[in-house]
């Protein structure tokens, strides 16, 4: 299991469009992907779960991957979030 902290930089936080992209990309990973924000544990493959967490701009989240490809998956998702999730 590997994890990394990353800050969300999207102007309006993880709204529908960025949340959708994140869930889609997480869905392609073979790892089990979770996001931790404060006390909350979020299933990264669920767009509803991500949106319901209402993650605002500037929030630090912890991304956790577990599985055979965990290193590669984590790196890919961290890069995606850092690059602004297509926005």
């Amino acid at each position: 299991m590997v994890s990394k902290k990353v800050v969300v930089n999207n102007a309006s936080g993880l709204h529908a469009r960025p949340a959708s992209l994140l869930a889609q990309e997480a869905g392609k990973c073979s790892s089990d992907v979770k996001i931790f924000v404060g006390e909350k544990k979020i299933e990264a493959k669920s767009i509803l779960n991500i949106m319901a967490a209402a993650i605002k701009k500037g929030t630090e989240i912890e991304l956790q991957c577990e599985g055979a490809q965990e290193q590669a998956d984590l790196a890919k998702l961290v890069e995606l979030i850092e690059s602004g999730l297509g926005e």
Partner: peptide, 16 residues
């Protein structure tokens, strides 16, 4: 229309 792409994502959602 990309709104429907987000709708599709919601319909297929794990949480649901």
């Amino acid at each position: 229309n990309e709104i429907f792409a987000a709708h599709m994502e919601i319909a297929g959602d794990f949480m649901l």
